[in-house]
């Protein structure tokens, strides 16, 4: 187990190299000149040149990259151009809000999607099945920003049940609408995956064995079948959680949620290169972490899976 964790940690290094390299190149190809973005309408070439030297932007690209990586290896993510603070502090400030939202949305998605998918599988080919599958398709295909605005309109403006925007004092009520908005998409995916996985499992002979033992249908489904069907759902939920943690920029924009997604969007607008790089790196780490968690969960649920050093 310890060796397994170690080998997984070693995988992190090449991924981080790849991610930084690609992001670095893309930023310099496509993002435009950060110095011009900083200076706005004023264009004093002398000042511009001084800023360029100060930030090391006058050096060749490969040199900039090696300098960045050199600092990264000792944990220094650089300074934000715009906020004039360490990037690590900027990210750390935004992370809790995103984590809260992502986990709340995932709980919504797992509860709603899991229950709906189970009902659809058990009531296969009935009106329930059709209804749930239609709703899940709607959940997957509805644009997030539109759903967010509709929820704001219905529950915020008309019914006045929940605040429509912002983080508030970090209380529960501010979390409800963004979590529902973000969770809807994942709930749709999870419902469909749960249904198909469960239908597959219900055809297995061990389900017949469980029934032949005289177990209640509820136990057959919830214990024997679901425990097996949950594995593919977990994989999906792991990727989904990573997606949610990677900021879900649209939802954060719609609800003015102070998370990483919104930070990344505004950093891109400001050409705040260190923040863009830092946030991208963090997202890559989050994906790796989520995959690792899924693997651990697999090993915990399925005795046939053994964690071995790869």
């Amino acid at each position: 187990m310890g060796r397994y964790v170690l080998s997984r940690c070693r995988q992190v290094v090449p991924v981080l190299f790849g991610v930084t390299l690609i992001t670095f190149l893309l930023i310099h190809v496509g993002l435009g000149d950060p110095v011009r973005a900083m200076m706005g309408q004023r264009s004093d070439p002398e000042i511009a040149a001084r800023i360029r030297t100060e930030y090391g932007l006058d050096k060749p690209l490969w040199n900039q990259y090696t300098l960045y990586m050199g600092k990264l290896l000792v944990g220094d993510l650089g300074y934000s151009y715009r906020q004039r603070r360490p990037v690590s502090r900027v990210l750390a400030e935004r992370l809790p809000a995103t984590v809260r939202l992502a986990f709340a949305a995932m709980v919504v998605a797992l509860l709603v999607g899991g229950i709906a998918g189970t009902i659809a599988a058990v009531r296969h080919n009935t009106l329930w099945d059709l209804l749930i599958m239609t709703l899940s398709l709607l959940g997957i295909s509805t644009p997030v920003f539109w759903l967010g605005m509709m929820l704001i309109l219905l529950f915020g403006v008309w019914l006045g049940w929940f605040p429509i925007s912002g983080y508030g004092d970090g209380g529960f009520t501010h979390l409800v609408l963004p979590a529902l908005t973000l969770g809807a998409l994942q709930a749709g995916y999870i419902a469909r995956m749960t249904r198909s996985a469960l239908l597959e499992v219900l055809r297995q002979e061990y389900v017949q064995t469980a029934r032949a033992k005289g177990l209640r249908e509820r136990v057959v489904i919830l214990k024997h079948a679901l425990r097996n069907a949950i594995l593919p759902v977990l994989t999906l939920a792991g990727i989904g959680l990573a997606e949610l943690l990677a900021g879900a920029p649209l939802t954060e924009m719609v609800f003015a949620w102070p998370g990483l997604g919104r930070l990344l969007v505004s950093a891109l607008g400001n050409r705040d290169i260190p923040v863009v790089l830092g946030a991208t790196l963090l997202f890559a780490l989050i994906y790796l972490g989520a995959n690792f968690l899924v693997d651990l969960a697999y090993a915990a649920i399925d005795p046939r899976v053994e964690l071995t050093k790869r």
């Binding site: 061990y206 017949q208 064995t209 024997h224 425990r227 399925d302």
Partner: peptide
């Protein structure tokens, strides 16, 4: 079921639940 009347199936490889 499983008490007064029991059943054994053909495929022992698939008749047992793999996760218990």
């Amino acid at each position: 079921r499983g008490c007064a009347i029991s059943m054994i199936f053909q495929e022992p490889m698939t008749s047992l639940n793999p996760v218990f």
